[in-house]
Structures are given as structure tokens and as C-alpha cells.
């Protein structure tokens, strides 16, 4: 059954804006309006403060762990217009890189799939999206998509590394020809898909359905099926599930998951891409699952504040 395995008291001095565990689920990174990022070792239900990272000059909005093949790397973004990349070396966390190329609050950071190397997308209220690629020797290559979203970009999320039209034969033995893609959401109420072609980032698709600012987007992890799935949520309280079956990636269908009464701030996919966690201004977390016939249903309601879980009904699929 669903059970609380750990409750971490972060001792942040102000409200928390993001919490995320690393690849293996052994460490927890949190960030807060108190301008700090904290890292806890949460193995075996414990909580040991590993690092208290100070360096931002404003509230820190989001954190993101890089794939462990690159080492222990964490990125954070803040109101102070900076993105800081932190790295653990010999047990000590230090700044690895500080990116100051945005002119307004940086709202979202997301590492790309490890197949592309150490690459990150950042979305900012200045409307631009930056792509930072580590090229070795402390060097970062920076590409910037200006005016990606008018007014501001609120969220970015990478597509899993899959080969486009995966059913088409490719010369085997060569490195698969992955295409870098990500999705972004912004204050223009749009969800936009971006694709790298010949080293240049191009707008691939523009998905319209929301009637207010898009607050978060999440590209579902792939389990190897040719369908791509994206979730988006907005100030308008709506959550949409976008799917695309065609290998060229041109036709996206929107399905309304639910209309909530308050802003929806965050969507997150489970590792197999069949459960979506939705959270928003109502201080609640709900889990949604796609049934066999393609309908989405709420399977739980983790009501907050009480710190308790109201029944998560285990609609297990083992029954045949």
C-alpha cells in the first residue's frame, strides 16, 4: 500500500517552492524563498542535512538533478535571474557554474536525457529559453531562444530520447539518431514544442487550449511506445493531456484531464508514464491514472496540511 516513508523537516526559513529527489531516490533537494537550497540524505527514512547551498540572492524557484553518470550535479534557478549549477566533489558542494544570461526571474530548469550529454534548458520571465551544454573543461555552450514566449516562459520539460519514427530502420551499430526536443509553457497561454535541427533550435509545434498562463508542462517518460504524451497545467485550473501518435510528431490531440477550482502549478509523471501527480493553489495533490480504455481517473487525493494520506485506493491492475 501507499505509505509515508519519510517526513523531512527542512528548517527552511520561508516557504518551500520545490523538492526533488535524485536519480536513485537517496537524496532530497529543496529550495525556498529563504534563498537557499538544501540537500538531505534521506536513505532509510533518515534525514541528514548534506549541504545548505547559499548563493542565490532571491527566492529559489526550482531545482533539478542531473543524471548521475555526470556526477552529483544539481541546478537551481531563482528570482535573482541566475541559474546556479552545483556539483559535489569530495563530499563538498560547490558552484560549478553560474549562468546569468537572463534578464528576469528564471522560473524553470530541466536537465535533458543523459543520451545528449549534460544539457539543460532554462525558462525565464524575460520570455527566453536558454540551453546550456557542458562541453568539458568548465566550458558551457549557450544557446538562447529569445522571445520563446511573449511576457514570459514558466516551465520547460525535455522529451525522452527516442528515435523519431522509431519503427523505421536505421543503420545499426551507429549511435541512434536521437532528436533533441523539449516542451515549454508560458504567459502567452501556449504550450510550445521545440526541436533541434542542424544545431539550431526551432519551434516545432504550438499547442493552444489554455485560457490563462501555462504554469507547468511535463513530457511523459517513454516506455518504448511510439506515442508521445505531454501534460500541461495552467492558471485557468485546467490540466490537459496531449498525445501524438504520428511518428512525424505533427498531430497533437488534447484531452482535458480535469478543471480544478484554483490554479494548477505542477504536473509530474510517474516513471512508467501512466500516473500523473497534479498539485496547485488549493494545497492538494491528486494522482490521476489512465485506464485501459484511455480515460483518466483520479485514484487518490493526498490532502495536505494534515500531512496524512486519505485513502489512496489501490486500483491494482493485477486482477485479471
Amino acid at each position: 500500500m501507499v505509505s509515508v516513508i519519510n517526513t523531512v523537516d527542512t528548517s527552511h526559513e520561508d516557504m518551500i517552492h520545490d523538492a526533488q529527489m535524485d536519480y536513485y531516490g537517496t537524496r532530497l533537494a529543496t529550495c525556498s524563498s529563504d534563498r537557499t537550497v538544501k540537500i538531505f540524505d534521506v536513505r532509510n527514512g533518515g534525514q541528514i542535512l548534506v549541504a545548505d547551498l547559499r548563493g542565490h540572492e532571491g527566492p529559489v524557484w526550482q531545482v533539478a538533478w542531473a543524471h548521475p553518470m555526470f556526477g552529483n550535479i544539481l541546478a537551481s534557478c531563482s528570482y535573482d535571474r541566475k541559474v546556479i549549477i552545483w556539483k559535489e566533489e569530495n563530499g563538498a558542494w560547490n558552484k560549478m557554474y553560474e549562468y546569468t544570461g537572463h534578464e528576469s526571474s528564471v522560473n524553470s530548469v530541466c536537465w535533458g536525457p543523459y543520451e545528449f550529454g549534460l544539457i539543460m534548458a532554462c525558462g525565464s520571465s524575460d520570455g527566453a529559453i536558454s540551453l546550456l551544454t557542458f562541453t568539458g573543461d568548465q566550458q558551457w555552450d549557450i544557446k538562447k531562444i529569445s522571445n520563446a514566449h511573449t511576457i514570459g516562459c514558466n516551465a520547460v520539460s525535455w522529451a525522452p530520447a527516442v528515435v523519431p519514427g522509431s519503427l523505421i530502420d536505421q543503420p545499426s551499430g551507429q549511435k541512434p539518431n536521437y532528436v533533441k526536443r523539449f516542451v515549454s509553457g508560458g504567459c502567452d497561454n501556449l504550450v510550445k514544442l521545440w526541436k533541434e535541427e542542424d544545431g539550431q533550435w526551432k519551434e516545432d509545434q504550438k499547442l493552444e487550449a489554455h485560457s490563462d498562463w501555462v504554469r507547468d508542462v511535463g513530457w511523459a517518460p517513454s516506455i518504448g511506445l511510439p506515442t508521445s504524451t505531454i501534460a500541461s497545467c495552467s492558471q485557468d485550473g485546467r490540466v490537459f493531456i496531449w498525445t501524438c501518435d504520428d511518428p512525424a510528431g505533427n498531430t497533437w490531440n488534447a484531452k482535458l484531464l480535469n478543471k480544478f477550482n484554483d490554479v494548477v502549478w505542477h504536473v509530474s509523471w510517474s516513471i512508467t508514464g501512466n500516473i500523473l501527480a497534479v498539485s496547485g493553489g488549493d494545497n492538494k495533490v491528486t494522482l490521476w491514472k489512465e485506464s485501459m480504455d484511455g480515460q483518466w481517473a483520479c485514484i487518490s487525493d493526498v490532502s495536505k496540511g494534515q500531512g496524512a494520506v486519505s485513502t489512496i485506493t489501490d486500483t491494482q491492475q493485477n486482477e485479471q
Binding site: M15, G25, S104, I271, A277, L287
Partner: peptide, 20 residues
């Protein structure tokens, strides 16, 4: 034009954890 900060959130992490 800066979005109102999130004060709650949930994320699936690792393989079988939900952090909120």
C-alpha cells in the same frame, strides 16, 4: 510577468517515490 510562486507541489522521483 513573474508567476506567483508555488507553495505546494508533488513530484514523482526515483522509481517509486512521490515527494510532496
Amino acid at each position: 510577468n513573474i508567476p506567483f510562486p508555488r507553495t505546494s507541489g508533488a513530484r514523482f522521483c526515483g522509481t517509486g517515490c512521490l515527494v510532496y
